[in-house]
Each structure stands twice: as C-alpha cells, then as structure tokens.
Write a protein that binds this DNA or RNA. Structure first.
Lengths: 245, 245
DNA sequence: GGGGAGAGATGCCGC
DNA sequence: GCGGCATTTCTCCCC
C-alpha cells in the first residue's frame, strides 16, 4: 500500500473512531515514563477507537510499544518514508514512528458495549473464607470483609474463641514475601487502632514460598492453605482434540 | 467473509507462523487462572506467530481476553456459527470463542528480530545514584549495586562516614507503602546477616505518598528526593502541531 | 484525582 | 523451573 494512502486511511479511521490494523515496517522511538528505541522491523500496528495505539512484534503477548487512550496522531511526509508522531498530553509522552512500508491496512467501526463477567478473583476468595471460616481455624469467626484502613484494606477481619482479633490476608496464587509484608503492615495498624498488644495474622493462599513461610513464622503469623474457588472447571486432561492443527 | 474461508485462512496462517488479524463478532468464555464470560460483540481478533491470541474490544489499551504463546487452535463448524477453541497445555487454560461473523481477516509473515533499547528504568536510577552518592547524603559512600539476598536484591548498598551500613531502595515513580515494606525487609535482613544493630535505610524516589512518608519516618528511615535519569527529553509544552487531526 | 492493591498481570534476571 | 521484583505495568475501587 502507498504511504500516501495509508496516511489518508488512518486520518479517516481516526475521524470515524474506527479500529485500524496494519502490517508496517518501521522503527520506533518512545519518550515518556521511560525512553526507548526499536530498530527497523515488521510489526502489527493498531489504532483503537479511543485513540489508544498498540504496536506488536510478531511474537509475545504484550505490545512492544503503546500509547494510552486519548492520544493524537500527526504525519510528516519525508522523502523516502512517512513520519508518524503520536502524542498524549495527559501523560506527556510521545511515540515517533518512521514508517517505510505498509501492508494490509484495514479499519472498521466496531460495535461492542459488553463488559466481561469474571469469577475466581481474590474477592471471591475472601467471600468464600467468610462463608467457610473453619478454613482459617477451627475457632475463627469472621467479622468484616475488605475493611478499609489508611494503610490498605484488610481482606477478612475476625476473632477467635478467646476474643483475639484475627487479620486474614488472601492470595489467590502462591504467597510470597510481599504478602507477608502486607499482612504485617495490617496487623501493626490494627494493633494501633484497637490499642491491643496481641493480634493474630493469617496468610490464606493455595501455597507459600519457603522464604515467605520462614518470614511469616518469624513474625508469629500462620499459613492457612486455601484454594481459590472456581465456579467452573473446564480443563480436562484427556479431552478430545477436534481438528487441531 | 465466509466463516469457512476464515477457518481456512486461520489454519494456513498458523501453519506458516504468520500474524493474523480479523474483525469478528463473537462471544467469549475463558477458563484458566480465573473464569470469564463476555457476551456477543464486535472485536479485533489477533493470532501471533508464536501462538499467542489476543482479543481487543474497540476501546482500552489492554486485551479483554488473551492466550499465551504456545496455544493451539481448533474449530468446530456449528449450524449458524463457528466455534473456536484455543487451548494452552502449559497453563491448562482454554478460550472458547463463538464466532458469528468475520470482516477483514488478513495475515502476513512478519520479519522482526529486533530488541528494544530502553533507558530510564530503575536500574539506570541505581546506576546514577552510585555515580552521584551525594544525592543520598553528603557522606554516603556506595559499595555495591543490586546486591542479592534471600529476601530480594538491594538496589544500592553503602555506608556513611561513621561506617554505618546504608541500604538504599530506589523507586522511579512516587514511592508508596510497599516500597517502605521492601526497605524495611532489606534493612532487617542486613542487620541479621551483618550482625549489627544499626542499619540506615534510605528511600530514594522523585516523590513519596504521605502515608508512606509517615511509615518511613516511624521506622527511622529517611526519604531522598531523586529523579530518575532521562537521556532524552522530547516532550515540550509549546511544540508545533503538524497536520494533526 | 490520589492512594492502595489486585491482576487470568507480563517479562526479566538470578540461583 | 522457582523466586523475587520491576513494569512506559493496567485496572479497579474507595476515599
């Protein structure tokens, strides 16, 4: 595709708030929260309806460069190539793209107002713990969930049979040192707020790293093995393969 | 585009390790680390050369659904639509896509082996601090950078004029509570390793949140205002606008 | 809008 | 491969 045509196609798509894709040969300079340069190569170039720009190399799940929604585009026609400048005034960043060739540029207005329904996150896990307090300890009695403090919110707050306050921090995946840090911060804050010396800390997760467990126990906290709830379980090891290629 | 043609185009592109894009009307069910459902709408569908799959809604910078590199695809032709199953055996996840219409499906082999050169990250910042120790304190003398311990690596380790060990944690953006947690963990570990009671802790960042500063000082640590180094500064407030639209 | 934390986080490096 | 952690993290929620 002619670079001139590409420029016109982009201008039209942006004006109509269409989504545009193109295979382009380019080099890229980014300046914003950091600075980066990517030498000449073939990439997938995307403009979304809200002014977000994504550039993907042929491999990897993440874009190699991107600009946030609300970015503006401008072109300068050079002798041998096209210079595209993408700017975002909100975060004061720029993306400069020298475009040497364009293949397969297409755009289309996409109609989609749907939001995704998601299950199996940490909130679901703290819900499950509230409903299954025995998973934390035999005598655990939950009081509140997602309790707000100035140092973050506590996943589950409760007490034991003796009346001691219990702070529970949930992780849906293997808990690491940072989870222990977090729990410690909450326990210390609760001690200050409630004016008590003894507050129990529980880290609830499907697993914990050895270092984290060591640090956890050194602080007098305990680990509770809890698996995050799943409403469905679609993966089966011995499933049929249909027309795989 | 006919669904039959789409199926063939995808099969061909995957076989050739091409990158493919298409505008599709679909609904999506994901099952893996969590579970999610997205009702029918028009989206941008992408397959990358390494078997990564991305689905983008018309707005937002992140994909609404994705599958990691190494995923496999299979089709089932239903009466009214096409059923696409994407599976990844490595993480035991599946993405099920009911495709009702396809527009503008294109694929191409992309040649790109380039890696991005990035500047202005946290490592650059700790380099800069090593070369400008006065930014931490008048008498700060750096010893090592990115020192490995079992509880993480210390950005900059040094000592003051009196010989006291100083631990520096860098953040390239506003430091928050988690940065203080991290610093505290390192300081405690260094005390244990070196067998000394007094170790200084410095949090170096361009800014710090009020809560983090309070927690920092309560632990006897100090804040050092340090801006992350930038090799270029391309943003100018009063720049020319060239053919913006 | 800032602060805090989760995320289907991803990606990198070191052991 | 696991662990620890930065990330142009992104996104959401709550104050």
């Amino acid at each position: 595709m002619e670079l001139q045509t590409f420029e016109e196609t982009v201008a039209r798509a942006v004006g109509l708030r269409e989504v545009l894709t193109a295979f382009v040969e380019c080099d890229i300079t980014y300046s914003g929260r950091a600075e980066a340069f990517l030498d000449r190569g073939e990439r997938l170039f995307i403009i979304k309806a809200d002014g977000a720009v994504l550039i993907h190399q042929p491999e990897g799940s993440s874009p190699i460069n991107y600009m946030r929604p609300g970015s503006t585009l401008s072109f300068v026609r050079e002798t041998s190539h096209l210079f595209l400048k993408v700017e975002n005034s909100a975060d004061k960043s720029t993306l400069e793209v020298n475009i040497y060739a364009v293949n397969e540029c297409h755009s289309r207005k996409l109609e989609d107002g749907r939001k995704q329904d998601l299950a199996g996150n940490e909130r679901d896990m703290s819900d499950w713990i509230r409903d299954h307090p025995e998973s934390i300890a035999k005598d655990f009695q939950p009081i509140s969930r997602e309790e707000q403090t100035d140092v973050g919110f506590i996943d589950v707050l409760g007490h034991d049979k003796k009346g001691s306050i219990v702070v529970v921090e949930c992780k849906r995946i293997t808990a690491s040192l940072t989870a222990v840090d977090q729990l410690r911060r909450y326990v210390e804050r609760v001690k200050e707020i409630k004016g008590v010396k003894k507050v129990k800390g529980v880290l609830a997760a499907p697993a914990i790293t050895p270092n984290a467990l060591e640090m956890l126990t050194s602080w007098g906290f305990v680990f509770a093995k809890v698996d995050p709830p799943k409403r469905l379980e679609r993966w089966q090891k011995n499933q049929k393969r249909l027309g795989e290629f």
